[in-house]
Design a protein around this nucleic acid. Sequence first.
DNA 1: CCTTAGTTGACTGTTTTAGTCGGGTATCTC
DNA 2: GAGATACCCGACTAAAACAGTCAACTAAGG
Lengths: 162, 162
Amino acid sequence: MRLTTKGRYAVTAMLDLAIHARQGPVSLNDISGRQGISLSYLEQLFSKLRRGGLVSSIRGPGGGYQLSRSDADINVAEIVDAVNESMDATRCQRKGDCQDGQECLTHHLWMDLSDQIHAFLSAISLQQLIERREIQTIAERQDEDAAHRASNRIDALLTTND
Amino acid sequence: MRLTTKGRYAVTAMLDLAIHARQGPVSLNDISGRQGISLSYLEQLFSKLRRGGLVSSIRGPGGGYQLSRSDADINVAEIVDAVNESMDATRCQRKGDCQDGQECLTHHLWMDLSDQIHAFLSAISLQQLIERREIQTIAERQDEDAAHRASNRIDALLTTND
DNA sequence: CCTTAGTTGACTGTTTTAGTCGGGTATCTC
DNA sequence: GAGATACCCGACTAAAACAGTCAACTAAGG
């Protein structure tokens, strides 16, 4: 079992996408700026999310990504899954052949843990996350920071272009 | 967060130890034979378990390891913890400085998941595991297999020593 | 003093992570 | 149709972790 930056970034990016969905397609560049994830890495992740049927893309200027379903219909478990981070805690992928083709002593324990984690993560939709007060606060802060950085960039351009 | 062979082996070995505790100290050699874990690797794991205060050791012939507390008093979470596999799901070790010193968008989600996993694993003691029917069945099978292997080894010795 | 068994530290091949880089291709606007 | 925007794709890589192995040592029992 593993949950690393890859899975966490995927959920973070999807949540950012869901939050900014009403302004039309969201570009990876914007997500990168707001969430501090490198653009190239995001491309890699979104290629998997697209293959997993969670997002659809629109090319060209003004393009970006969209959720392919309602945010109420996408849960955290499938996002983590889509980027290949299985949350399965067993060694044998639940097959029960962990020790010479037979069940190891702790097989059932890890099965139970896997079920537990899966139940927890699949019960949480993007919509539910968006509604959380703490997350709204953080999203607002990130939007302000991004706006500041944008205006700083413009200032820099104006002063060097004299 | 990660749960790999290391943590799973540690729990398996501790459970084996608890099951065979009434016959006195259990040697790593026996655990290795029953659970199919290499002796050298077990040594590495038990060095951490000892430092973590979960087991005590007796040297010399007839020696081995013992639980340093009652099996009802040792839970799965502390075993996994002792071998350095933190089950923490956050990137920031719960500090909340995941993005430039501030909380990232999904910080609270991973905090909740961590709490969930910890609550689950720390509620399960070695004693509870031993009492489970499936685990008793597996343990009996492993004991028989080990006995067979032992008698085969003796046969081999007798025939080569003619 | 020999065997058993724990103790310790260093070493190693392999896999995964967490990216980067460099080139594409589709689409919109002017 | 030129250029900019933005997605698309494959190859590459430094660093870390995993999953051990190996060798040498110390302590206890017979």
